[in-house]
Design a protein around this nucleic acid. Structure first.
Length: 103
DNA sequence: AAAATGACGGTGT
DNA sequence: TACACCGCCATTT
């Protein structure tokens, strides 16, 4: 089954396609990358490669809207970036109903 | 090579 | 909304 070694690369590619002002869930990224259950792996990969200049990893959040984390300044920074793009927030979580990536 | 890890998801309390 | 568990996967140690 080819694709496992490309998983990480695929994750970056997909993450890069997330439109500004929208957010995708780790599960979504995982699915688009080949494994819909690899949400955890996605998080691990993004964490190990955080490169905000190349990849808008701040547009990736958990399925329940939690920011999850951000290796480049913490979730506070991430939240701020999202707010700056127009992403709607609900308490401390993203309102996926309004800002979720509908592809 | 084997075990542990973590930016998760889903369900139940 | 918040917290606790369990299941799942690729990467890292």
């Amino acid at each position: 089954m080819p694709g496992k070694n490309l998983f990480a690369q695929k994750v970056y590619e997909v993450t890069r396609q997330i439109p500004r002002g929208k957010v995708a869930t780790y599960g979504q990224i995982a699915e688009l990358s080949g494994s819909k259950k690899a949400a955890r792996a996605v998080g691990r990969i993004l964490h190990s490669n955080s490169n905000p200049a190349l990849i808008p990893c701040h547009r990736v959040v958990a399925s329940d809207g939690s920011l999850g984390g951000y290796a480049f300044g913490g979730i506070e920074k991430k939240k701020e970036l999202l707010l700056a793009e127009g992403v709607r927030f609900k308490k401390d979580k993203v309102d996926l109903s309004l800002s979720g990536w509908c592809r």
